[in-house]
Design a protein around this nucleic acid. Structure first.
Lengths: 261, 261
DNA sequence: TTGTTTTGTGTGGATTTGAACGTTCTCGTG
DNA sequence: CACGAGAACGTTCAAATCCACACAAAACAA
């Protein structure tokens, strides 16, 4: 759901929230762009930005505004903004697989994080995750239960992949397990780039009643080197563009439903 | 399912509940929008909003109303406001107990969260915690290792207190264990208000090489009902004002060092 | 009816906004 | 490296908007 520009003049606080959302999608905006988008003077935008900067939420740069950290930005934030629109669309599509009252297991990953955000208004959910980002998101949703798999937390992924996390997740039998994935290959199936991450994901497959993989179209061109799952293990593949012929055939043969956002 | 505006004039209580539902659907509403929707004057809406604000259910902003926990503060900061200066000073003082290279176990709590924030520039720390907020904070610090105790996450405290968290923490032997506390009593020692939280804290005591309790002066007037630790279990008590005579005597008798911020 | 609660209107004070103006910063040029 | 043009910035001030308080009218309950 793209952030909509308020047709009528928005209040100041509304501008601040929208501005933060805009920055999530594109890390940098110029004062002029924002003034035009909100239909206010550039000076007003500067005042807004000053407030957000004092609160530490954004960083001022000459001519515009960006997320704090700039080039020193941690890698996961960059990943979050990379392909942001596509991932957001995929998350919205994946929302259709979720029903109120379900138990979800969400793997770490930026696309699954977008899904967690989209989950805000679904009533009575139980969410299990190994991602600190997803945990923080779900804690902001009223009426959702949260179970976190702990252990050593990877500073790049902000998630726990160790044996404690694996053992903890094994006790649950979620209605839907949602995985992000580093690469998709027509022959080898679903692949990843990190052995620990892959081992964690593999361990989730047996317990799940239903497994969904969320990935944007760029993953079809890549080739990971750690096997996570075959097409037969995955019930739903949610993506933003039609996959290449070979992948579509392999998915159809294995009974994997492909959902296009 | 849009909430339908009552055709007839609604009673005040009905407006309040409907307003909260509206906020669930869209985080911000202007006074004018609400006045039109409920067909009452803007002043009436302001009165409603004032009530809800005093109850802590919503937040007033210039020109409208939004869900509590405004935009300027990152989510985890919302509860830090209370006694913020005192807690910050206590955290700064507690920083003197920390040396580079140490392994710390941080209990959940707003004062310990302030300590986590103050820890940003200490090199080569290992932090263990059951608090999602402290975890998020430490993940923002370069060069600090993080271990999170998982399990069911309490939606009020944003922390895990269950048996999994207890078992997980038991494997560590931290150099310093830092606890927040609900109340301090000269006779019964350190107390809390929640049985689960207290059980978790109690389980941390045996492994710790050194135990520090952080609490502001308001805790000296309160009286909890769950025992957590005696003065003999605690090596350091960091607070912002000199404790009452009886507590000072009890601490001195047990060898608990009292640090004033 | 009488008393209480709720709502609408008016007023003074506070906040936000936009335009004007002087200052600072950036970047290309000599 | 100095310098100057142009853009961006911060400050100031007037206008518009919004807010809180006070008081009267209306609705409601006893």
């Amino acid at each position: 759901m793209p952030v909509r520009a308020p047709s009528a003049r928005a209040t100041q606080t509304a501008r601040l929230t929208t501005l933060l959302e805009l920055l999530e999608q594109r890390g940098q905006w110029s004062i002029g762009e924002l003034a035009e988008r909100f239909d206010v003077s550039e000076e007003t935008i500067r005042r807004d930005v000053r407030q957000l900067e004092q609160a530490g939420r954004v960083q001022k740069i000459h001519g515009g505004v960006c997320l704090p950290g700039g080039v020193l930005e941690p890698p996961y934030r960059q990943r979050l903004r990379d392909q942001a629109e596509a991932k957001q669309r995929i998350a919205e599509r994946a929302l259709a697989l979720v029903r109120p009252g379900m138990t979800l297991l969400l793997d770490s990953g930026t696309t699954t994080l977008w899904l967690a955000r989209a989950l805000g208004h679904v009533r009575d959910l139980t969410v299990i995750t190994n991602s600190m980002e997803i945990a923080a998101q779900v804690l902001g949703h009223a009426g959702q239960r949260l179970y976190v798999a702990g252990g050593a937390v990877d500073p790049d992924y902000h998630a726990a992949f160790g044996s404690e996390a694996i053992d903890y997740c094994r006790q649950f039998a979620p209605d839907l397990t949602v995985l992000s994935m580093g690469a998709v290959d027509p022959v080898r199936g679903f692949l990843d780039f990190d052995a620990g991450e892959a081992a964690f994901k593999r361990s989730l497959l047996p317990q799940a009643r239903r497994v969904a993989v969320l990935c944007d179209a760029t993953k079809f061109d890549k080739s990971g080197f750690v096997h996570v799952a075959g097409f037969g293990d995955v019930h739903d593949l949610v993506t933003d563009q039609a996959p290449p012929e070979e992948i579509a055939v392999a998915a159809a043969a294995a009974g994997t439903a492909v959902h296009l956002a």
